[in-house]
Simulated scan of single mutants.
Amino acid sequence: MRLLLATILILLSIGCSNETITEEIILIEPDQIQEISFINKPGRVTIVFNESRGVDIIVWTKDLDPLEDYEIALVYNDKNGGVIFGPEANLEIKIGNIEGETILHPNHNGELYVSMLNPERIFTGAEQMKIEISTINKQKVIESYPFRF
């Protein structure tokens, strides 16, 4: 009987909780490799933080529309700043291609794999960051979980 009562009390306390789940901001430290998932989309962001080289941000995703044009942005503090991936000289594109300075095209399977090396100073002062992939019409299609340095 005590076990049944204890079980009921535990279930009621869990079910009646008013706590909301908040997104945890992933902390990235020097000389660390961190993988960050996209929210409800396949793919990932890999961040390689090397104090002597900078911060390499690698973005891999699939299931994009192969006929659509996209931009990848590193967004600071809920869109109060950021960096758009590009130009081509600053990128390493393994899957997909680039047109102009920042317009990226996935391959015929909807896959895109691109990386950009950034100086550490561009991350200074940002409380949180996310990677966003948007159409060139600024419609966000993919967003990563938040992170910070």
Rank of each mutant, 00 (worst) to 15 (best):
R2S: 11
L3A: 12
L3H: 12
L4Y: 13
L5Q: 14
I10D: 03
L11R: 11
S13C: 10
S13P: 08
S13W: 10
I14Y: 11
C16V: 05
C16I: 08
C16T: 11
C16P: 07
S17Q: 01
N18C: 10
I21W: 06
T22H: 15
I26C: 04
I26T: 07
I26H: 04
L27G: 09
I28N: 05
P30V: 02
D31Q: 13
Q32M: 03
I33M: 04
I33L: 05
Q34V: 15
Q34T: 14
E35H: 15
F38I: 11
F38P: 08
I39L: 08
G43T: 07
G43M: 07
T46C: 08
I47D: 02
I47Q: 03
N50M: 07
V55L: 01
D56L: 13
I57W: 10
I57R: 09
T61H: 05
D63M: 08
L64N: 07
P66E: 03
P66K: 02
P66R: 03
I72S: 12
V75D: 11
V75I: 13
N77E: 02
K79F: 10
N80T: 13
G81M: 04
F85M: 09
F85E: 10
G86H: 05
G86L: 06
E88H: 12
E88Q: 13
A89W: 08
L91E: 09
I93D: 07
K94W: 13
K94G: 10
K94A: 12
K94V: 06
I95Q: 03
N97G: 07
I98T: 02
E101L: 04
T102I: 12
T102D: 14
I103V: 12
L104A: 11
H105K: 09
P106E: 00
P106T: 00
N107R: 00
N107E: 00
H108C: 06
H108I: 11
S115F: 10
M116G: 05
M116Q: 07
L117C: 04
N118E: 13
N118I: 09
N118W: 12
P119A: 01
P119G: 01
R121V: 15
R121M: 13
F123N: 01
T124M: 12
T124Q: 12
G125C: 09
A126K: 11
E127H: 14
E127M: 14
M129C: 01
M129N: 02
E132R: 09
I133K: 02
I133Q: 01
I133T: 00
T135G: 03
N137E: 15
N137P: 13
N137L: 15
N137M: 15
K138N: 05
V141I: 05
I142K: 07
I142M: 08
Y145F: 15
P146N: 01
R148L: 10
